[in-house]
């Protein structure tokens, strides 16, 4: 648990339930997800145990590429990108302004809730791939570890690509994106407040400057073009 998450958990415990009504639901969802992941991991271990005699490296590599947890984190870069988007700047999280912090805490919990729901959809796809894989290798045992990995890759890729196009996957991923964005905006909201309090430039002020510069450059380009068009054509060098 990083300091930000620890602080959020601390605040979630202190804040009245009316402010963070989803806290208990998120906790229950997290427990259910942990159980589901545990089952999938056990299933993966069972699959790995069926690998025909091979060296330790090949077996380890198979466990890595078939690890259901990898589908939830390292295996799906998008989740990492979303996490990064969600967590954003850490310094903004240090400050204690209750109303904004409550919004932030709620955003964190919502992020966690939709993220768990999305993980459940991904794990369902993993289970489907694992079931198909188990059936295939039961009938046609692979010749060696490499063949077994190739078989897993083919099935896993196909099942995951199909799952990614499903309404359930797209909806839960969109919800995760939405929650990540809202969390990021809640953090920026705190940053804006402290910027104003302590007199350093806020994101809004810097954005305003950038907008002004862009508009001035646009006008400059237009003026240059008008000037060039009004002058007789020069010979090129």
């Amino acid at each position: 648990m990083n300091p930000f998450e620890a602080a959020t958990a601390f605040w979630a415990a202190l804040l009245p339930k009316a402010v963070v009504p989803e806290a208990e639901e998120v906790a229950r969802l997290g427990e259910a997800m942990a159980t589901l992941l545990e089952s999938a991991t056990a299933m993966m271990a069972q699959m790995a145990s069926q690998m025909p005699g091979s060296d330790a490296n090949t077996a380890a590599l198979f466990r890595k590429i078939a690890d259901p947890a990898a589908w939830l984190s390292g295996g799906a870069d998008l989740h990492e990108a979303l996490d990064q988007i969600a967590h954003g700047p850490r310094f903004a999280d240090m400050w204690d302004i209750e109303r904004r912090y409550a919004r932030l805490s709620a955003a964190v919990l919502e992020m966690r809730r939709v993220s768990d729901l999305h993980h459940a959809v991904v794990l369902a796809a993993w289970m489907e791939a694992a079931a198909e894989f188990s059936g295939v290798i039961a009938v046609n045992p692979p010749a060696d570890g490499r063949a077994m990995m190739a078989q897993w890759s083919e099935i896993a890729n196909r099942v995951l690509i199909t799952a990614q196009r499903s309404d359930a996957f797209l909806a839960s991923q969109a919800a995760t994106l939405r929650a990540g964005v809202e969390l990021s905006l809640a953090q920026q909201d705190l940053g804006e407040l402290f910027g104003r309090l302590y007199g350093f430039p806020t994101r809004t002020e810097v954005d305003d400057l950038h907008r002004t510069v862009t508009e001035l450059r646009r006008e400059l380009r237009a003026l240059k073009r008008e000037l060039a068009e009004s002058q007789p054509q020069k010979q090129h060098a």
Binding site: I65, G74, L78, L177
Partner: peptide
């Protein structure tokens, strides 16, 4: 969703699009 994403980041982050591309061939990327 698109508006909020751009509002929050001021850009479409390159790393984000890279992740979307990786998602198109998930196991290959792994």
């Amino acid at each position: 969703d698109v508006d909020r994403l751009i509002d929050a980041h001021g850009a479409l982050p390159g790393a984000f699009m890279g992740a979307v591309f990786n998602q198109m061939s998930p196991i290959r990327s792994l």
